[in-house]
Design a protein around this nucleic acid. Structure first.
Lengths: 177, 177
DNA sequence: TTGGAATGTCAACAACGCTGACTTAAACTG
DNA sequence: CAGTTTAAGTCAGCGTTGTTGACATTCCAA
C-alpha cells in the first residue's frame, strides 16, 4: 500500500525531496481550507444556537441510521458527556429520536426525525456546494490526489472508520435495530 | 483560473459529474484527516498545558516576526480577547516578546524568544513529519492535486492571506518594526 | 486642542471539550 | 441464582477557546 521511502529513481520528480517550506505551505493550506470547509454550516448553526458538535452528530446519525450511542462516540472521538450534552438538546428539540434496542434493550438506536433530516440536508447542502465548487475548479485528477493525501494523513483507526462509513453506505444496510 | 463549469468533452472523466455520495466522502475525508493533522501537536501541547490556539499563534509569529496583534487577529480569524489570552500566557512564559512600535506606539510587535522558537520547531517538526509521510505515500501528483483542491476550498480572503504568507516568506522581509 | 479612530487590554460569559464518580438496566457467566 | 460486565445516562467540576462590551492609550485630523 505505502510506497517505500526511497529517493526517486531520477531527478524528474522533485516533490519527494520535501523542503520544510513545501510542508509548511501544506500545513497552512490545511488550516485555511478547514476554515472555509466549516464556514457555511457554522453560519447556519449559529442562527439556530447550535454548534459544530450538533452538526457532526446529525451528519453521522444520518449516515448510519439506527447507530448506537457507543458507536457514535467512537466515530466522533469525544467523551460520553460531550456527546450526551449535544444529543440531549437534539432529542429535546425533536431532531433526533432515540429508540430502545430490540435485541439488546440496553442500547439506544438513534434516528433523525423528519425535521432532523431537513436540517442535516440544509447543512450538508451548504457544505457540498463548497466542495463541488472546489472539485470542479481543481479538476478530477486533483480530486483524486486530494483524497489520496487526506487518507494518508489519517491515523489508521480514523482510516478504518472512514472506510467503514463508505462501505456501510454502499450497501443499504447501516444499522439494524 | 477556474475552469468553466461544463460537462466533460467525452465520457472519459466521470468526476465532473459529482454525486452527493462523492462529495460526502470528501467531507468525511476532511473531517478525519484534520483530526490526524492536529493530533501530534495536540499531544505535545497537552503536556505543556497549552492548546491549539497557542500553537497557531507561535506558528504565525514565527512566519512573520514583528507582526502586530491586529495583523495576527485577521490571520487567525478570532477575536481580540481570544488571541490576547493566549498571547498573555506565551509572553508570561517567556516564549513571545512584545515590543512597543517605534513609529506607532499603539502597536505591539511580536517576536518569538529563543525558547519560543524551540517550541515552535518541536511542534511543527511533529506536524511536518506527518505531512511528509502523507506526501510521500501519495506521490507528487497527488500532492499537487491536494494543494489545488484545498486552495479552491478557501474563501477569497483566506486565499489572499495564504498567498501573502507564502510570498512574505519567499523574500526575507516579513514585518518591520 | 479636541474629538474620533485605531490599537491593545481586561472582565465576564457561553460552547464544548475533558475527567471521575455514580446509577440504572440489561446481558452474560460461572 | 449471584456476581460481573456492558450500555447508557447523569452530576459535579474543570480547562481551552470562542464571544461581547467596556476601557485606556495613542495617533491624527479638523
Amino acid at each position: 500500500m505505502a510506497q517505500p521511502d526511497r529517493a526517486p529513481p531520477n531527478g524528474g520528480e522533485t516533490l519527494l525531496f520535501l523542503t520544510d517550506e513545501q510542508l509548511r505551505q501544506g500545513i497552512e493550506a490545511m488550516f485555511f481550507a478547514y476554515r472555509g470547509f466549516t464556514a457555511d454550516p457554522d453560519r447556519i448553526l449559529a442562527e439556530l444556537c447550535y454548534g459544530r458538535a450538533h452538526h457532526r452528530a446529525l451528519h453521522f446519525i444520518n449516515c448510519a441510521p439506527g447507530t448506537t450511542v457507543n458507536n457514535l462516540l467512537s466515530i466522533l472521538g469525544v467523551t460520553k458527556q460531550s456527546l450526551n450534552r449535544v444529543l440531549r438538546t437534539l432529542i429535546a428539540d425533536g431532531l433526533v429520536e432515540s429508540r430502545v434496542g430490540r435485541s439488546d434493550r440496553r442500547e439506544r438506536h438513534l434516528h433523525l426525525t423528519e425535521e432532523g433530516r431537513a436540517l442535516e440536508q440544509r447543512l450538508s447542502d451548504a457544505q457540498r456546494a463548497r466542495m463541488r465548487k472546489a472539485y470542479r475548479q481543481a479538476g478530477p485528477e486533483a480530486v483524486a490526489g486530494f483524497r489520496k493525501v487526506l487518507e494518508s494523513m489519517m491515523d489508521s483507526e480514523q482510516r478504518r472508520q472512514y472506510h467503514a462509513l463508505r462501505d456501510g453506505r454502499g450497501q443499504a444496510s447501516g444499522g439494524r435495530e
